[in-house]
């Protein structure tokens, strides 16, 4: 589904990604872990087309199409979704208008008619329940005045509405208490199918107790330096990152 080959990316002339290689197949959940500043969030930003980053080398194939030349909106319509680490507040734009615009843009891309008002509200209600999101949030401005937990649940709600093929969850666990974490993780698990896939970026093993990964990668200094099964996450939780740093920096 997703194939990243030798991806290099800069921000303000500083190289952050130094040759990422990663393949994600349908039905899989990949966890990407790593110490602060290793390039985890940069990777997710580059994948969804954040213009702040410059790709200098490599390619990304998503569903057989090269996507690095695509606009962020086209990548979304192709089925790529990012749950933001810091969801953006948009004062004055209601969740309803925002979500309707997003859903209809996705439908238009697939040459489908806009969703009817009643179907849309039904869909909102259904998907809201998955993350136990309050009805009142729908009429409020996007993320404005939402608590940290509400913002993250709102991200998963949007994911439920858009039904992406590949979801990237960028530190969705940061800023969440245990209850909110469980709600969010349940939401993600509910949305899992054999046809879609997810990349979970996290610092901690904790989230992976709820969202079971098939593959765990360690990102360090802009490269994937270790790949293993779920047991790798447990090992990191126990021993920290120092042993990996030594292994790599010692080379």
């Amino acid at each position: 589904m997703l194939e990243i080959k030798n991806l290099h990316a800069n921000i303000n002339g500083k190289e952050i990604l130094k040759g990422i290689n990663l393949t994600v197949n349908a039905g899989e959940v990949h966890a990407i872990m790593g110490p602060n500043g290793s390039g985890k969030s940069t990777l997710s930003s580059v994948l969804v087309g954040n213009p702040a980053f410059e790709v200098t080398e490599g390619e990304v194939i998503f569903n057989g199409k090269p996507i690095l030349g695509m606009s962020p909106e086209d990548r979304s319509c192709e089925g790529l979704f990012l749950s933001f680490q810091y969801p953006v507040e948009i004062p004055g734009v209601s969740m309803v208008n925002f979500m309707r615009a997003a859903l209809n843009a996705n439908r238009k891309y697939k040459k489908l008619d806009p969703v009817s008002a009643s179907d849309f509200l039904k869909l909102m209600r259904q998907k809201r329940a998955i993350v136990e999101l309050d009805n009142k949030l729908a009429s409020r401005s996007v993320n404005e005045g939402f608590s940290g937990g509400e913002k993250k649940r709102n991200e998963i709600f949007q994911m439920a509405m858009l039904e992406p093929k590949l979801a990237i969850l960028d530190e969705t666990d940061s800023g969440l208490d245990i209850d909110a974490l469980r709600v969010v993780a349940n939401g993600v698990n509910t949305l899992r199918t054999p046809e879609n896939a997810a990349i979970v970026i996290t610092h901690y093993q904790r989230l992976l107790d709820y969202i079971k990964p098939d593959v765990v990668h360690v990102l360090y200094k802009g490269r994937i330096v270790k790949t293993g099964g779920p047991e790798l996450a447990l090992e990191l939780e126990e021993k920290g990152y120092d042993w990996i740093k030594k292994e790599i920096d010692g080379e």
């Binding site: 213009p51 962020p72 979304s76 949007q158």
Partner: peptide, 12 residues
């Protein structure tokens, strides 16, 4: 905010 909306499929 513009980028956030675009990542949801909304055109620029």
């Amino acid at each position: 905010a513009l980028f956030y909306m675009r990542t949801r499929g909304i055109s620029a």
